[in-house]
């Protein structure tokens, strides 16, 4: 229960788990080839720019707005997914209702669907004459070709991340924990709030981080519904593509580098939070 199977390098003590050197070497090589080298290329490309040029590009109004739209909406969408995803997970795991398996399968659709298909489907659904767009338009709400459309597309593609990370943890949660709470006099709400939710926090944070990362990087499904008006509904990945099509490669990579750094920082924070939550709940 205490030894969690973690082997620390350089602890000066021979560990019992063999193959540390081999797996560590493979891990580092693999991560380098797949992730680090391409990223290094990205950074190198930006060095074609002087610092002033770099600063100019990334602080231009259009870039800043695109970044704000991408990160802000992605964060909001991840929050919505966190809340709604938890509710969906709860229903899927805790209740038996007709069609449960079908709903369970539906959750994966945003994973599987080509993003362009999702984008086109959402656009036609929310267009002024679409099934949902028409009634919403009557209420004066315009979704397609506005930031709201981007938001909805980001929610759409993010939901499976929350559901699929939290689901197994909730399934494995010991029912005796809840019975203990009930027998100690806690009502249903207190049990959920004080016992179940805290046990799910690490998984919820992971789900949130994944949904957020995916939404920040999402391109295919967003550009169809976004309208892509500079400064209003233009996401950062689209701006990068635009710069590329204008052959302004250095500009494109500069924006990419900023996205990378911000995303990395946010994920780092979430990781720390997760680590903190997990060490408070030592794993069995």
């Amino acid at each position: 229960m205490r030894g969690s199977g973690v082997v620390t390098a350089g602890s000066g003590r021979r560990n019992t788990l063999p193959g540390f050197g081999l797996t560590m070497g493979l891990t580092l090589t693999w991560l380098s080839v797949i992730i680090l080298i391409p990223l290094a290329g990205l950074f190198l490309k930006t060095f074609e720019l002087s610092f002033a040029e770099f600063a100019n590009i990334v602080t231009s109004r259009r870039t800043l707005n695109a970044l704000k739209i991408s990160f802000g909406l992605a964060f909001g969408a991840a929050l919505v997914n966190l809340v709604m995803g938890s509710i969906v997970v709860w229903a899927l795991v805790r209740y038996r209702f007709p069609g449960r398996r079908i709903f369970d399968a539906i959750v994966d659709i945003p994973f599987a669907l080509p993003t362009a298909v999702a984008g086109i489907a959402l656009t036609s659904l929310f267009a002024q004459k679409g099934w949902l767009g028409a009634p919403l338009a009557e209420l004066g709400i315009k979704v397609a070709f506005t930031p709201l459309g981007i938001f909805i597309a980001m929610i759409f593609i993010g939901i499976p991340f929350v559901v699929r990370t939290v689901q197994p943890v909730l399934i494995d949660l010991d029912p005796e924990i809840e019975e203990a709470a009930a027998s100690l006099g806690a009502n249903r709400w207190q049990t959920i709030w004080r016992v179940i939710l805290p046990s799910l926090i690490p998984a919820l944070l992971t789900g949130f981080a994944l949904a957020f990362a995916r939404a920040v990087g999402e391109y295919g499904s967003v550009i169809f519904i976004a309208g892509n008006l500079p400064n209003v509904s233009e996401i950062a990945p689209l701006l990068i593509v635009i710069r590329l099509s204008e052959f302004r490669y250095a500009d494109a990579t500069a924006i990419a580098v900023v996205m990378l750094i911000v995303a990395f920082l946010i994920i780092l924070v979430v990781n720390r939070l997760q680590y903190w939550a997990q060490t408070r709940i030592p794993v069995h």
Binding site: D174, E176, I177, E179, A180, A182, S183, V195, P198, S199
Partner: peptide, 21 residues
């Protein structure tokens, strides 16, 4: 009466302690 209203203390075989507390 439900479990919470019976004033019964239950000790589970596998303790069922709240791990995050």
């Amino acid at each position: 009466r439900g479990a919470g209203e019976r004033q019964v203390g239950f000790v589970f075989q596998h303790y069922a302690l709240f791990r995050h507390m």
